[in-house]
Write a protein that binds this DNA or RNA. Structure first.
Lengths: 140, 140
DNA sequence: CGGGATCCCTTGAGATACTG
DNA sequence: CAGTATCTCAAGGGATCCCG
């Protein structure tokens, strides 16, 4: 299927739906880690992703499993062991994900810079406005 | 820069930061639309994106502008006219974004199917549990 | 037309405690 | 170890009104 403008517009809903899963930072992290680790256990995954709570990781994994992107394998041992991995569908996602990851690495600096510039301009404008208001008030 | 495992791990922060912007569905939509429309006015944009509120569109555009991805051009006319477009940095994002868009179009169906399967299995398991609990309670 | 400001409610998400 | 359940609080985001 070639993606002409019209077909893209028609797929806005699909995109929106997919983005609700992909757009979630934890989901992207999980897929990213999984694409490099192969198969990995819950707490390993948790340690690999900085700042994720156990609750959010659980929810993220459930959603990814539900969407057919991640496999969940339970080993009936003591202590319990559960391993996560990518499905074939999940593996096809690593392409786009890595593209995004690479882009982040390349352009993150530029974004930081742009923010700094923007913020300085905004404070300058705010100051200008403030002094105008003072001058305006002084006239009364 | 080649993206080895270690450098990717080191870029987790950058990725996380970028994802907070990219991961936002409205931002992706805006960049997607802008990449095809070239330059476009506020209300045109609003109409192009199904379901976005004026407030969220404004906030999204401000963030994208701050990150140096979108340009905002004000024409001092009556009625006022403001046009939005992609910066050079923003244009580099369309590659990864479109990759994701294409992926969505191709695999959305598979995800829907996976969800249906998953949900059916879950209800089945839930029913099973429920009947077990009934049997268990009946023993007392 | 293109927003800014406010109100208000829903959702997201961390912390904590408990279970198989 | 790998979760589930609950509680809580902050943030997200829609609706509305107003302004330049």
């Amino acid at each position: 299927m070639s993606l002409t403008d019209t077909s893209k517009s028609a797929n806005c809903n699909a995109m929106s739906d997919v983005l609700n899963r992909i757009g979630d930072k934890w989901s992207v992290m999980v897929v990213g880690i999984l694409s490099r680790s192969g198969t990995i256990r819950f707490n390993e995954l948790k340690r690999s992703i900085n700042g994720v709570s156990q609750r959010m990781l659980t929810l993220t994994l459930r959603n990814l499993e539900r969407d057919g992107l991640v496999t969940r394998t339970i080993y009936p041992e003591v202590p319990p062991r559960v391993e996560y991995g990518l499905t074939e569908l999940g593996k096809t996602l690593t392409g786009p994900i890595n593209a995004l990851w690479d882009w982040s690495a390349q352009h993150h600096g530029a974004i930081i810079d742009a923010r700094a510039v923007y913020d300085i301009r905004q404070t300058a404008i705010a100051d200008e406005d403030a002094s105008r208001k003072v001058a305006y008030a002084a006239r009364d």
